[in-house]
Design a protein around this nucleic acid. Structure first.
Length: 299
DNA sequence: CTAGGATCCTGTCAGC
DNA sequence: TGCTGACAGGATCCTA
């Protein structure tokens, strides 16, 4: 999906357009994508847009909220006097809307918010504002990297001693916000192989990983997420995180900027995974916590 | 409890 | 051209 930086980008962007606006109608194109009663949101005003991890919460008047999760392929596109689009990257942000992937249409007083989602894993859910924090998904979410201490993350990793570190940091109940792109980028930046067992990381490696997770996502938010996040122009320009900042994600075959080795693509935790085989060493895996001379600190 | 794989769904692309 | 399998920026459910 859209990972934390993309969702935060959407939150900031939408805030400018729909806060204080009224919902005048909702059209559900796909039942699976919309949970709740349309009648509960029509006529309500948008008060605030919040974010819990990768979930977006649109608070409405009358104690009602919309929870929106984009999962793998969700997009939110606001079409008013100008168009703002973010989420799963696609070439058709500038298409005519609704399109084939449009699942829910929220008509506002001066524009239309489209929820598009190719694979239908995402959803728009109507709930009582008071119940948002009790939601199962929200309740289980861990802290975001910026709020988490090295000690806390280290302790959490010890609870998954045998699992691959990449699988563990993708778990939103361990640390929240990372997805497939930023997990690869953070592990690369920290010089840690994604198949290292989580329990084998030293305190210092955990410190590096946490720092790089923050840095990588900060840079992405600053550049508007990795997908288009600015106003849609005729040229269909998009956010430029992948082009500007990604060192390994979808860079297989290119040279590692640090050591020149060829970036490789492997499979870890069922996900495509990108590494520099030289900078990210696996040999320390033999025994959890065991010293290994090949695991030289990068700094 | 953890770890790993299957699963939800649609579309695209490589390889025959 | 048409078919097939693999894969995809996520999270949950099932099994061992």
């Amino acid at each position: 999906m859209p990972e934390l930086p993309e969702v935060e980008t959407i939150r900031r962007g939408l805030e400018k357009y729909i806060v204080k606006k009224k919902i005048v109608g909702v059209d559900v194109y796909c039942e699976k994508s919309f949970c709740g009663q349309v009648a509960d949101v029509v006529g309500k005003n948008v008060k605030e847009i919040r974010r819990y991890g990768k979930a977006l919460i649109i608070d409405l008047s009358g104690g009602i909220s919309l929870m929106i999760h984009l999962r793998m392929t969700g997009q939110l596109i606001y079409d008013g006097t100008e168009r703002y689009a973010a989420g799963h990257p696609s070439e058709n942000f500038v298409d005519k809307l609704p399109n084939k992937q449009t699942r829910v249409v929220i008509r506002m007083s001066d524009g239309v918010l489209y929820f598009n989602d190719q694979r239908k894993f995402g959803f728009v859910k109507v709930m009582r504002t008071a119940e948002v924090e009790q939601d199962k998904f929200v309740k289980k979410l861990a802290k975001e990297p910026w709020q988490m201490s090295v000690e806390e993350l280290y302790a959490k990793l010890q609870r998954h001693p045998k699992a691959c570190i990449k699988a563990v940091i993708l778990d939103q109940t361990v640390i929240c916000g990372l997805g497939n792109i930023y997990a690869d980028e953070a592990l690369y930046a920290a010089g840690i192989h994604p198949e290292r067992r989580a329990g084998s990381l030293s305190k210092d490696e955990v410190r590096r990983l946490l720092k790089e997770a923050c840095d990588v996502m900060n840079r992405s938010i600053e550049s508007g997420g990795s997908t288009m996040a600015t106003y849609v122009r005729a040229d269909g320009s998009r956010g430029d995180y992948l082009e500007k900042f990604a060192k390994v994600f979808r860079k297989e075959g290119t040279e590692c900027p640090r050591c020149g080795a060829k970036i490789a693509k492997i499979r870890v935790a069922g996900r495509g995974t990108h590494i520099c085989p030289k900078c990210q060493n696996l040999s320390v895996n033999a025994e959890a916590g065991a010293y290994d001379s090949s695991d030289k600190e990068t700094k």
